[in-house]
Design a binder for these strands. Structure first.
Length: 484
RNA sequence: GUCCCCAUCGUCUAGCCUGGCCUAGGACAUUGCCCUUUCAAGGCAGUAACACGGGUUCAAAUCCCGUUGGGGACACCA
């Protein structure tokens, strides 16, 4: 085994793939973040490499511990497990400072005494004149060696030649170095800036493939010269297409929920989220549904789209419905329990078995597109009595149907135990004998059993309810019908 | 303003690299029909796209150039 960087013919032949997801903890983990994390994770798992979680919290004013927790919770929920970390950049300050000083010593960096306000004023002025809002290089050749406390350190970017990226997704991208700015690498408060801390960390953590959002593409030519100046090998880069809202602008709150945990609360299954997100920018022929294992086996950069994708909640909803229908019922039931408790059914849930809950899921899984919808579908099956929907009862539990209902009840009561087939036959026979339409009896029974006009098949409902409760509810329904 | 990226149905995409098999396939959504004890689910069918203009070629969705359109970046944010 050689170390992470084996150099061969000037290219890096990696013994092991090492990738990272490096969010900044300034809010909730959003859909876009999960998307990038997912592609990195898939690549790592496919290559049997290492997936690292790194928290980029060098912006003290915006980073919070709650956000870090939100990132961790979100990652865990979608099942993207990391092999190293979470690392926090604020715990690695010495590393950035020492490397920054190394750049200063090698004259790759210089002190800048321009004030932030001045800089902004100059930038605005340039913009007003229609010029590029770049740093004018004022301090570049001042040769400051003994800087005031509030000086910032700038990287002396190359001004000539080109920087070429052989992007994993976009292919060859060329930048003229003339457009490069001398970026600040150490702020006047001593904290490193993003473009510097990423380079130091990506190098020190042995990241072989830097895969991030499209919006970082123009950061890459800024970072490559820093790798070089520090004497580090340059990793491969890959820039993923962005996720846009329906109006083709960057996905944001305006487009609805963007926090991954909001989808958990809305009753989405993590596997459905992952499956939907992976299809945003990646494909494998015509296949839409993938198991996690299939994803790992089939993932490659070859079929990653170059263009941005629009987030389509309709398709996500469809996919969630697919997962609800096809996931193991016990697993769905487990995910449903917290939502049932939230709906105030904690006691009822406690009173039933896991098996019965799974049976309940099977009963309603075809009609619920989310777990939240499923809670509504499942409510009528808890408790002894059915909660009548007023209008439904008024319409179907009328004195007219009472005699019919009475006859049905009598027949059912005669059976010592429940049998779907036997009870259904008996039901149909009665309908035939009475010469009424199926629905004339079915709807009143449905309302009696569930309190509502829409439900799964009558006999499946009875099966879940059991003989005792079925008879009980039928009697209650008859009572209601008789009194009007 | 400068630089960079992108461009197939409304949306996600297959096909593009290695031109002909494309009268452009699948999925979501949508429309109609079927199934049906309700609501779903399911089945079948339909509407719908190669941004535009030039090349190259016997042949272009596929290769080249330009235009247009969209997106991104240009902070002591990440």
């Amino acid at each position: 085994m050689c170390d992470p960087f084996c150099v061969k013919k000037g290219h890096f032949i990696m013994s092991e793939v090492r990738v990272r997801f490096a969010p900044s903890p300034t809010g909730f983990l959003h859909i876009g973040g999960v998307h990038t994390a997912l592609f990195n994770w898939l690549f790592a798992r496919r290559q049997k490499g290492v997936f690292i979680l790194r928290i980029e919290d060098t912006d003290q004013s915006r980073s919070t511990d709650e956000s870090i927790q939100a990132i961790i919770d979100g990652m865990k929920w979608v099942g993207l497990d990391w092999d190293e970390g979470p690392f926090r950049q604020t715990e690695r300050m010495d590393l950035y400072r020492s490397h920054a000083m190394k750049l200063f010593e090698t004259r790759h960096a210089y002190w800048c005494v321009c004030k932030a306000e001045e800089l902004e004023a100059r930038r605005k002025e340039a913009e007003a004149k229609g010029l590029s809002p770049r740093y004018d290089g004022r301090c570049r050749n001042l040769g400051i060696v003994d800087p005031p406390k509030d000086a910032a350190l700038r990287f002396r970017a190359p001004q000539e030649g080109q920087t070429v990226i052989d992007d994993l997704i976009k292919g060859k991208v060329v930048f003229d170095n003339a457009v490069l700015d001398d970026v600040i690498i150490l702020r006047s408060n001593g904290y490193p800036t993003y473009n510097f801390s990423v380079v130091v960390d990506d190098a020190l953590m042995g990241i072989t493939d830097v895969v991030r959002g499209d919006d970082h593409l123009t950061n890459t030519p800024r970072q490559i010269p820093i790798f070089a100046a520090l004497g580090f090998p340059v990793p491969r880069f890959g820039h993923l297409p962005m996720i846009l809202g329906a109006d083709k602008t960057r996905l944001s709150k305006r487009h609805g929920a963007t926090s991954i945990m909001a989808y958990k609360d809305m009753g989405y299954l993590p596997d459905a989220m992952v499956n939907y997100l992976v299809r945003l920018g990646w494909s494998h022929g015509d296949q839409e549904l993938f198991t996690r294992q299939e994803l790992i086996e089939k993932f490659s950069w070859d079929h990653v789209q170059k263009s941005a994708a629009i987030f389509n909640p309709d398709k996500l909803l469809w996919m969630n419905a697919e997962y609800i229908k096809t996931s193991p019922p016990g697993q769905v039931a487990q995910a449903l329990v917290p939502l049932l408790e939230q709906a105030g059914l904690g006691k009822e849930v406690e009173a039933v078995s896991d098996e019965w809950l799974a049976q309940l899921v099977v009963l309603v899984k075809e009609r619920a597109k989310t777990l939240v919808e499923m809670v509504e579908w499942v409510k009528p099956y808890f408790g002894q009595e059915a909660q009548f929907d007023m209008e439904a009862a008024k319409k179907f539990l009328t004195p007219t149907v009472a005699p019919l209902l009475h006859k049905l009840l009598a027949r059912f009561e005669a059976f010592p135990s429940f049998s779907k087939q036997v009870w259904e036959e008996s039901f149909k026979k009665l309908v035939e004998e009475e010469g009424v339409k199926m629905s004339a009896l079915a709807q009143p029974v449905r309302v009696a059993l569930t309190g509502r006009t829409a439900s799964p098949g009558l006999f499946e409902v009875m099966e879940v309810l059991g003989r005792g409760r079925t008879l009980f509810r039928l009697r209650k329904g008859l009572e209601r019908a008789s009194t009007g």
